[in-house]
Nucleic acid binder design. Sequence first.
DNA 1: CTGTTGATCTGCT
DNA 2: GCAGATCAACAGT
Length: 187
Amino acid sequence: MNIIPESFYARDTVLVARELLGAMLYREFNGILMGGIITETEAYRFDDPACHAYRGKTERNAALFGPVGHTYVYFIYGNHYCVNVVSRTADAPSGGVLIRALKPVIGIEYMQHNRANQPIAHLTSGPGKLTQALAITKSDIGIDVTRQGPLYIAHGHSIDQSNIQATPRIGIKEGTDLLWRFVVREL
DNA sequence: CTGTTGATCTGCT
DNA sequence: GCAGATCAACAGT
């Protein structure tokens, strides 16, 4: 295993979002290992009106102002958690990359157990789905993903630039002109 | 203290 | 394709 170092996340949020595609996300929970290849991300930079941190620091978004390579988890629509990795340059106050989808690889049975035995194609194909599959909640805020532990990210597949599609982000009302959602066309 | 609003998912049509 | 679920955090009074 080859964990991605902290320096990777200390760069422009948008660049980190693009380059996280193909990386392996690992989750250790109750002694069980789960994980998959990151196939979809979105960048939320401090200077972007769609970013939770755009209007300043609050209790909820404080993690986005914390150390890079740590997690920011939030609860949305009364039902779902979404997980980000804090990423920004040294001169930026905040920023994060939303992990939107994985290709399930490890611990598929346990992920299905967490997701009412959904078929593999529906296991981790959305930001709320993958947190449910991996049992990620608010108590997982602030985890350092550059160290082996409950949640960490390692080098995986290298994705060719021509295999990456950039589109507007999903579910936002401002900043819809920015093509800051990145999707792997195929693995 | 109260009202509003989501970086979504599911099930039904 | 679309409405409903469902609640924590925020902004405004």
